[in-house]
Design a protein around this nucleic acid. Structure first.
Lengths: 305, 305
DNA sequence: CCGAGACGTGAAGGAAATTTTCGGACCAGC
DNA sequence: GCTGGTCCGAAAATTTCCTTCACGTCTCGG
């Protein structure tokens, strides 16, 4: 009997991982990663030397790329590749997803967007580090106070998380004003938690308050698409969101938001589970508090003017 | 020297092949074949030496068995094994259909959430009325001014839409303060568009400004999960979001948000397409304006305190 | 404009894996 | 007990993989 559970490299999340880590790769490594992502089956049939020649690089680069993707060496990457190829083979052939074009009919836009977001969700789920997530949940559940930082599109996600945590009785606040965020971060102490949400991983306005919180001894969590970005310097726990390819009409903010929200939801559910005794009544209380805000039913038809 | 082996090694029919060929095997080879068939995943993790030790045989025997099974050597058998393991792995994941329970491990929570949200996306895309969507897009693209109403969780979606439309040069504003929303709605005229976002379809704070806008002659759009709700009285175009079942730990806000965001994205892309001439440069301009807000690269490791 | 430093890269050598070779062990039959 | 055959594994031979190191290139600061 063999137990290879914990440190086992991700099985299916390879394509997602390639996209996530691509920005932090050098040119040569990108070529290798690209080849691997494009044709897992083909690459699985190649030796280190073969893949190096195919991509016009050296064996060392291939090994380096394998390491970056989370495997101990090329040998294990190759095994994962074989597995991936088998899955693709047996699984449905993924419908060809071209980029969204200017002249796409609206129905195609809907289909492509839905498909892309589904893909993003799958990638994110596959790429999430359960240990980190679990640790972050634990910290949040026990927190005296929670500060959440995010600006721009990520600011909305930050607010979403804050709203949810408030609903289950935690003390959470989302800051999108960098100055206020920093001044609030100074107040944090050991039992507190600070969460930074930034897709790029390098948004100064978000990193700065997290740094302050980190130095104050608070537990810090980063939700980012760049696990190698500056923000992770000051993060005790890093939750990686996936990055879909983006096109001219489809800015990165769109898929990153989907990914971030999934992570946020997972955090929320996790915390709700751990604090179930207090969370459940708080949830229903907040629900009932809003009931009278909904008008019972539609009347007739309205007349304009 | 390289030889091309004629018959490609079968990937999935391995267990059958083991049984078929077992009689023609010697005792030691049978032990190897048996181990391989019993635990493909485990054996895939072993080297030749490891498998030889596990089965109490020698490396040579392992290679001989591989040959008999139709592979050029153990290396290729191992690859096939990894593929088989991946297939088996992917085959079993039907546990996600259940509701999220209090004692679910965190990994299950992630899987279930991702699955549910994927389902929600598919449902929403399938249920969207293209004619209504198209009409709404047309109204937005030609609008002089756009007001968006939403409170609570839907308020964040409203802000998301406003952010996006602003980015492509439209005049859009999200209101979550009901009073301000109404006072602003009074200003709307024929060429303007008002969008109301409410899952329940009966949120008074959102219906009220929409009614005002409607009576002022503005084009009104409702994004709601209840196409028969009160809000649709005052909506020229109704975009229906899907509703997933909710459980105690998973409030409706979660899936409705996913659904609403997809609709909002569709609106955005649709508008961006129609106003491409102005949208494209506006998008890249807003992107560049933020570039300097990102610190270039990570330094070393941070020290707490 | 130039130099110092850091980074990316591949070549070569070393380690580990796989495959082959070869000799010994076992088992009939003579 | 010997002989021929088959089966098996230890160790050599080979391929594959990994590590080290030096060279080229780029960047940043003066």
């Amino acid at each position: 009997m063999k137990e290879i559970f914990g440190p086992a490299p991700a099985p299916a999340a390879l394509a997602a991982k390639v996209r996530t880590l691509a920005p932090s790769m050098t040119r040569s490594m990108q070529r290798v990663a690209e080849a691997v992502a494009a044709d897992p089956a083909g690459c699985a049939a190649l030796t280190v030397t073969g893949l190096a020649e195919l991509t016009g690089t050296s064996e060392a680069t291939v090994v380096r790329t394998s390491r970056l993707l989370g495997y101990p060496g090329y040998r294990d990457l190759r095994l994962a590749l074989a597995g991936l190829a088998a899955q693709q083979q047996s699984g449905r052939s993924p419908a060809v997803t071209a980029d969204i074009a200017v002249d796409d009919p609206i129905a195609d836009v809907v289909a492509k967007l839905a498909y892309d977001e589904q893909q993003t969700l799958a990638d994110t789920a596959a790429g999430l580090d359960m240990a980190q997530l679990s640790a972050a949940v634990g910290a949040l559940a026990a927190a005296r106070r929670i500060d959440i930082y995010g600006v721009g599109a990520s600011g909305l996600v930050a607010q979403d998380l804050a709203q949810k945590l408030l609903r289950i009785g935690l003390v959470a606040h989302a800051h999108s004003d960098p100055h206020l965020a920093v001044t609030n971060a100074v107040q944090l102490r050991a039992k507190d938690v600070a969460v930074a949400i930034t897709h790029s991983g390098s948004t100064g306005d978000v990193i700065e308050p997290l740094r302050v919180a980190f130095e104050r001894g608070a537990t810090t969590v980063a939700i980012t698409g760049r696990p190698d970005g500056p923000v992770t310097q000051y993060a005790d726990h890093v939750l990686t969101t996936s990055t879909a390819r983006e096109s001219e009409l489809r800015p990165a903010a769109m898929s990153s938001r989907t990914s971030q929200l999934l992570v946020v939801d997972c955090l929320f559910i996790g915390v709700a589970q751990r604090t179930y005794e207090t969370a459940a009544p708080a949830l229903s209380a907040s629900y009932e508090a809003l009931a009278h805000r909904h008008t019972p039913r539609a009347g007739g038809t309205a007349a304009r003017r």
